[in-house]
Amino acid sequence: MATDLLLFYLFGAIAAGASLLVVLGRNPMHSVLLLIVSFAALAAIYIGLEAPFAAVVQIIIYAGAIMVLFLFVVMLLNAHREDDAAPPAGVTSGPLRAGGVLAVLLVAELVWALRRAARGGDALLSAGPGADPAALQSVRALGNRLFTEHSLAFEVTSILIIVAMVGAVVLARRES
């Protein structure tokens, strides 16, 4: 049982570390690549959570499609580095520092709130019949759920995708 904890720490550390480097990195290309590493680590964690389908979706859609889009834009714009020059007049570094402080506060707040939730969850886990891994892993169950209970949401999402597609084409088109 200790191995899954060990694996969680390994992949969790990779995900957290890579995400931090994404945010701090100066080269957008490296940021994009590190984010893919973070996604892959999260996919490994999903497998540990009895969610192989989620793990595969994470890789196919996030790493395989969305990140390629980012990569394309970074390659096409060819803006290798962020300007380290001073921000334009009217923008002081105060708000930027405030962002850092805010993030630290957010961590503290989230950890506090989630620890309470986790205590409830673990109590549930030890009291209840426990989740059946086979039922959780089943793609069939997921599909049934998606196309019955959540069918309206599913249809709305498809409209969202079409709107986004048309919108992206209109926005990125060169005016002739």
Binding site: I36, P52, F53, V56, I59, I60, A63, M75, Q137
Partner: peptide
């Protein structure tokens, strides 16, 4: 033997795009 084997093949294929794109860039 994975129960989502087909999707795994698919996922790894989509990762292999990066090898080519990164080489080119």
């Amino acid at each position: 033997d994975v129960n989502v084997a087909v999707l795994v093949v698919f996922a790894i294929t989509s990762i292999s795009v990066y090898g080519i794109v990164l080489a080119g860039w």
